[in-house]
């Protein structure tokens, strides 16, 4: 059932496939980034290394691919909270190379997660920081990944007046609405795992074109659960449902939410938690929706891969699990 594609060395800390699943980026504890490409176009089964370089000081914990509309580029996030953006380009007469475009974040204010989204015709990058701040950057030149402009900076709270002490966040999870293009302003979802309960709950942020600012349009937590630490969030692709589906993993379990498409009178999107599922014991590491948005795959501290689906009556359940066995 499982076909082996590649074996990597022991120092490997994270991997990430590009959007079309033809390139794999892998990073190591010493800050080395490696790129593997399909050898043979029609089959993705054999991969060869095409690039290997030390891109960061220290342990790389996450790699995020930039949408292909903006080239072949990855953002590497280190355990020290530094992001390094690398791009594959052939400049002038030189051969193809990976080059650094941008680096940001520092050890006192770490970047916890970065995700890219396309809004209208512009590439945006959302970064979540360890002090609980969210920064949205905008790419100025579509062909140039060096020039980013800070578009907005805010905290993951609904009421901006609420005061709390200095926040310290362990992790954050961001997921853009996968719907691209069209006239719709894009939106993203973010949740924190922090010591400040106001920051934690996942919220959907949407850009308000008229007032040029980001607004929280939905909060995905029941009133009694708002302080729960969020481990991972994932926005499902919507291929035509009359509502959005979002998965949020907290220390309470895995919640599936339906989010309405049209805001009510106060500008909020109607939300409904349709399931609270248990399965992974402990932390959920990662959640990924398949391309139809019908199956959710998750991994977690229990070392299992679990698949979740809804049945014909809309009841969510664990469909299958994979247990790694040596």
């Amino acid at each position: 059932m499982a076909k082996e594609l590649l074996t990597l060395d022991d120092a490997t800390t994270c991997t990430s496939w590009n959007f079309s699943g033809t390139r794999l980026a892998a990073a190591s504890a010493d800050g080395t980034l490696s790129i593997f490409d399909s050898r043979n176009p029609p089959s993705s089964s054999s991969l060869r290394s095409t690039f290997k370089f030390r891109v960061l000081e220290g342990n790389i914990v996450k790699i995020v691919w930039v949408p292909p509309e903006y080239g072949d580029a990855v953002a590497c996030i280190s355990a020290d909270g530094i992001v390094s953006l690398w791009e594959e380009v052939a400049e002038d007469t030189q051969s193809l190379q990976w080059k650094m475009c941008k680096s940001f974040g520092n050890s006192s204010n770490k970047v916890l997660d970065v995700q890219f989204g396309i809004s209208l015709t512009c590439l945006k990058m959302v970064a979540a920081y360890s002090d609980g701040n969210i920064r949205v950057f905008e790419l100025l030149d579509p062909l140039e990944l060096r020039n980013w402009q800070l578009q907005a900076e805010f905290q993951n709270v609904i009421e901006s007046v609420s005061a709390f002490g200095k926040a310290s966040c362990l992790s954050a999870s961001i997921s853009w609405n996968p719907q691209k293009g069209g006239s719709q302003e894009s939106s993203f979802l973010i949740g924190f795992n922090s010591n400040t309960s106001e920051l934690n709950s996942s919220k959907v942020w949407e850009f308000d074109q008229a007032h040029q600012r980001w607004l929280p349009v939905a909060e995905l937590a029941l009133p009694e659960d708002k302080g729960h630490q969020v481990y991972a969030v994932a926005w499902a692709p919507n291929i035509g449902r009359p509502y959005e589906i979002i998965a949020v993993a907290t220390d309470k379990g895995l919640a599936i939410w339906h989010v309405g498409l049209n805001p009510d009178h106060d500008g909020r999107l109607p939300v409904k938690r349709v399931a609270l599922l248990s399965g992974h014991e402990g932390m959920v590491w990662q959640m990924e929706w398949d391309m139809s948005g019908m199956t959710l795959a998750t991994t977690g501290e229990d070392g299992m891969v679990r698949l979740w689906q809804s049945n014909l009556n809309g009841v969510w359940h664990q469909q299958a699990a994979f247990e790694p066995i040596s």
Binding site: M1, A2, K3, E4, L5, L6, T7, L8, D9, D10, T12, T15, L24, A26, S44, S45, L47, L307, A320, F322
Partner: peptide, 9 residues
């Protein structure tokens, strides 16, 4: 080591 595998569901 790290292994990358593909699983057909």
């Amino acid at each position: 080591a790290t292994k990358v595998v593909e699983v057909k569901l």
